[in-house]
Amino acid sequence: MFRKLILSTILSTLVYSSPLKLNDKISNFSLTDQFDKIYTITSDVSTIVITFEKETLNSINDFLSKKEKDFLERNNAIFIANISCWPNIFTRMFTLPKLRDYKYSILLIYDEKSAKFLEVENKITVYSIENGIVKNIRYLNSIFELEEILK
């Protein structure tokens, strides 16, 4: 119950925000990861990788599983999975236990209304951030493209 209260409070700041676009300044916001740890995303982040579908989530997880534990941190990157459209029971019974097997943090969006990122179906969305400003938004078709960005 307490977790839901905290999560809803954190996510409420995102509910009325519009999606991040080019030249937008990112404001600090918080999300929880698969271990229920709260992360605050600040302007220090240089790359935000977002997935909206199970297939792209699995592809990114396959890619990151082959990297060192601190790969995302060394690249000033965060990985976000929007799981808001997945049934809650499915998420609790299957998705979260599987995600807890990974050695890196996957920040989770549980509420579709709070999603502040642009989506293109079957694509991986990547935001490039410089000094807290969105400088580029790319929609990737493959992990190979992601690997080029996160060298």
Rank of each mutant, 00 (worst) to 15 (best):
R3M: 04
K4Y: 02
K4T: 06
K4S: 03
L5Q: 04
I6M: 06
S8C: 05
S8R: 05
I10F: 07
I10K: 09
S12Q: 07
S12V: 00
T13H: 12
T13P: 07
V15H: 02
S17W: 02
S18R: 02
L20N: 02
N23L: 12
N23F: 10
D24T: 09
K25N: 10
K25H: 13
I26S: 10
S27N: 01
S27K: 06
S27Y: 01
F29I: 02
F29K: 08
F29H: 03
F29R: 06
S30E: 01
T32D: 01
Q34R: 03
Q34I: 02
Q34E: 00
D36P: 00
K37Y: 04
K37T: 03
T40G: 04
T42E: 04
T42S: 07
V45A: 12
S46C: 02
S46P: 08
I50V: 15
F52C: 06
K54Y: 10
T56Q: 12
T56P: 04
L57T: 14
L57Y: 11
L57S: 05
L57G: 05
N58Y: 14
I60E: 11
N61E: 05
N61R: 07
F63C: 14
K69G: 11
K69C: 06
L72P: 09
L72I: 05
N75A: 14
A77T: 10
A77G: 03
I78A: 14
F79A: 08
A81G: 12
I83C: 15
S84M: 12
S84D: 14
S84Q: 10
P87R: 15
I89G: 01
I89R: 08
I89W: 01
M93A: 01
L96I: 13
P97F: 10
Y102G: 07
Y102D: 03
Y104H: 15
S105H: 12
I106P: 05
L107K: 13
L108E: 05
I109W: 02
I109M: 02
Y110W: 06
D111V: 04
E112A: 01
S114P: 05
S114F: 07
K116S: 13
F117I: 09
L118P: 00
V120Y: 04
K123Q: 10
I124P: 02
T125F: 03
Y127A: 03
Y127E: 04
Y127M: 05
I129E: 07
I129Y: 09
I129Q: 01
E130S: 08
E130P: 01
N131M: 12
N131E: 14
G132I: 14
I133S: 09
I133D: 15
V134F: 05
V134C: 08
K135M: 02
K135V: 04
N136W: 01
N136K: 09
I137S: 03
I137A: 08
Y139V: 10
Y139N: 13
L140F: 13
N141Y: 07
I143N: 13
F144K: 15
F144V: 14
E147M: 13
E147W: 08
E148L: 12
